[in-house]
Nucleic acid binder design. Structure first.
Lengths: 196, 196
DNA sequence: CCATAAGGTGAGTCCGGTTCCGTTTACGTG
DNA sequence: CACGTAAACGGAACCGGACTCACCTTATGG
């Protein structure tokens, strides 16, 4: 149980390299769908020994948590990029599908995600908040352009997506999730029939 | 990896007793919220040795699966009882809240539930089907009595509940889940404003 | 170039699920 | 009521995998 001071001096060059390699190896493993990849393997494929892994991450779960956090970070930068390249409506559509596909990562890590949630770690609150922010950005752009209805907020949409991605882990879930997301998107477009 | 022939002769008296004791001990443990109770402990508190546990259940997960299945069985008999004692509307209300509280059991077993789902074991399909049936029974009784709207089916309602119970594991989820369920119930009552 | 503290290593520990085989026990039969 | 036997039980041993620790290596600032 190492203690990591948040105000420590910058890492030594090799240390930073190894840390990076570990995160990327772990990401690789979990994206590959191997939810219970062994630490030994992750360490080896990063070219270091387990001891090094444990120097950087308190536990296996902490490593996964970090991978998850980075993944969320990356996703949250996407809306900006998409809005540069596409009309708001299309950007929104792409982002929704991106999120669903991304839930595949969650699938690989589901057991741990549960345990993280149970731990009340702030990671999830953070993730939720940032993700809702990302969605809001898209929704606002769309409603400003008049192509997306303006009575749905980021957090609401996130909740809907959460429900969809909760389907994870039954066979064929991805296809179904994509369909439902497409429906959801249609409902978000301006001019869709609205409940009074 | 024992093989259990489905058409084996009835268990010996002591064997049945022990099996029962094991299930009840396991149930106790998981209801108590200890998601990762040790097999050793479960066996001991059932008054047997681990070997005996493994004679009856192929693996730890199999034991949990069985507990879950029994739990669902029990729940599915409730609607009948409730309909005997209450008006359909009230029976429905009570059953919905019962289900939410019951999700607490699910919480204790969440990790395993995930892994069962991932295993494509038929347990979940069964559970879903039976549960939807139980809900249908209540909905039909209610709509026959004219107190519950008739355009919602058991499977649909189950899906909605699934979403609510998916909230499991964040602090305070139970309170929130109860609230949302109450809202849901109000929406189900005949005469509630309906989307066109 | 040296001192030194940061970083790395990997065999070993611990822990918990699972197995295996010798012993005990229920129960049908003579 | 023995008795034989298959069924059931016990629990020490096994094994796989996360985590530790005592010792070695190396980056880096002076």
């Amino acid at each position: 149980m190492e203690v990591f001071l948040s105000s420590s001096r910058p890492l030594r060059a090799d240390a930073r390299r190894n840390r990076e390699a570990l995160l990327s190896a772990a990401r690789q493993a979990f994206l590959g769908g191997d939810a219970d990849a062994h630490v030994e393997d992750i360490a080896r494929s990063a070219g270091v020994a387990v001891g090094t892994l444990y120097r950087h991450f308190e536990t296996r779960d902490a490593l996964i948590e970090e991978v998850y956090r980075k993944e969320v970070d990356d996703l949250c930068t996407e809306p900006g990029v998409l809005l540069d390249q596409h009309a708001p409506e299309e950007a929104l559509r792409r982002f929704l599908l991106l999120l669903v596909d991304h839930a595949a990562v969650g699938k690989g890590m589901s057991g741990v995600l549960e345990s993280i949630m149970a731990t009340d770690s702030p990671v999830f609150d953070d993730a939720r908040t940032r993700m809702a922010g990302a969605l809001s950005l898209l929704l606002e752009a769309g409603s400003a352009a008049g192509t997306v209805r303006d009575d749905v907020t980021g957090p609401t949409l996130l909740r809907a997506l959460g429900g969809i991605c909760g389907m994870r882990a039954t066979a064929g879930w991805l296809v179904e999730a994509r369909q439902i997301t497409a429906l959801l998107f249609d409902g978000l477009r301006h001019g869709a029939p609205q409940a009074p």
